[in-house]
Design a protein around this nucleic acid. Structure first.
Lengths: 217, 217
DNA sequence: ATAAAAAGTGAGTGGTCACTTTTATTTTAT
DNA sequence: ATAAAATAAAAGTGACCACTCACTTTTTAT
């Protein structure tokens, strides 16, 4: 099987194909928690070993290097991230369903909210490490953007045809959506520690939706 | 002299009051460059000593700890950051000058562009460390936000009175402005390495201005 | 049942780290 | 000019790091 994208390539480099043992799960679990809290550089392998109840040697038997353990955390998260998005939002970009652009934006934000709520710690690890690793970012960003653009293009064209979006270039619209929603998600799940109430969260989502639908009309 | 805000407090904690020697300037200069590139944790004091042409002991004579050296980089940057903003934008919030909200936004973005262009490396250091240091962030964010809100409130009220802004709560307007502009600046000066041409930069600024003035009208 | 393979262990190992102490040089005061 | 004080350089120091290795235990295959 050939590797078609950078994530597959990284996954195979990191030999992630084999299924995990119970101890491996413990190791990854502990690594995510400690990396998320203190960052990769400030986390020692001995600490991960202690927290996961495993000998330090076991970590290196399975992952070879500390770096490789990090990739074993990040890569599956990113691989999972894209498909669920496209799949769960197929309803909103289907011409059969008479939905408004507003509904698409709302569904998109809700989807990312739920995804990040369930993967909060890994999200923190990824954000931190993407900032520190220029190489990783340079490889990953264009790939992720391409996937996103491909998906958004369909939606944008769809809603343009319905006359619900101005005739700004898709790229500009895309960039605005992403920066507004992205910065909101980062501040929501990364910077602010306290949990929001359900209704406060709904209100913030509606503010975003209103802002985005006005900002480009 | 009493300490009125957290930055003064941090500065006095770090004993930043005394004027710098030539070697200290060299040390701080080298530290900024290497911290920006590799991050604080991945930078050794011996490397800073080598790059600044100084013995390692000299660093510790002046700064005591590596942590303290970091503060000597971050704090002056933050202290400088606010006053220049308020001062350079006083023109745009003066009722005497018959300016539009659009002009205010444009001036604000331009101001931050110029500021960050001149302090790119320090900006990178600050962003990275704010992500890693929950404590620092928790102390600093509310203070910076308070300063910003105080400033923005004047502007928002001013342009509301002129009927150029809808009657959304100031806080919501403020949050939207800041997240849109902030995420743009982070991607511009932190994530993207290549330099933009002057006209491309102007176009991006105009896109932002247009988006923000539409988004809240 | 038994041999082979895989998983797990924990005491090292060399090297680097932030920081200290000692020694040398420069600056200042008289 | 010279002693005292400030500054810089150089040579440590112990703690900790990622990683290895010889070995034991568990799982799998026949």
């Amino acid at each position: 099987m050939t590797t078609h994208n950078i994530l597959d390539k990284m996954a195979s480099d990191a030999k992630l194909s084999k299924k995990e043992t119970a101890k491996q799960q413990k190791i990854v679990e502990a690594a995510i928690a400690i990396f998320a809290e203190k960052g990769y550089s400030n986390t020692s392998t001995s600490e991960i070993a202690r927290k996961s109840g495993v000998a330090e040697g076991t970590i290196f038997r399975h992952y070879g290097t500390k770096e490789n353990l990090l990739l074993s955390v990040i890569v599956p998260f990113l691989k999972q991230s894209m498909p669920t998005l496209a799949q769960e939002l197929s309803h909103e970009v289907n011409p059969q369903n008479n939905l408004h652009f507003e509904d698409f934006i709302r569904a998109f934000i809700r989807n990312r909210y739920n995804f990040l709520r369930e993967n909060r710690d890994i999200f923190r690890v990824v954000i931190k490490e993407l900032l520190y690793r220029d190489e990783l970012r340079k490889d990953l960003f264009p790939y992720i953007l391409k996937e996103m653009v491909a998906f958004f293009d369909i939606a944008i064209d769809h809603y343009k045809a319905r006359g619900e979006l101005g005739d700004l270039p898709n790229q500009k619209l895309f960039r605005m959506f992403l920066s507004v929603i992205g910065s909101h998600l980062v501040t929501r799940f990364f910077l602010s520690s306290d949990d929001l109430g359900k209704e406060e969260e709904e209100e913030q989502i509606e503010d975003l939706v209103r802002f985005l639908t006005n900002g480009v009309s």
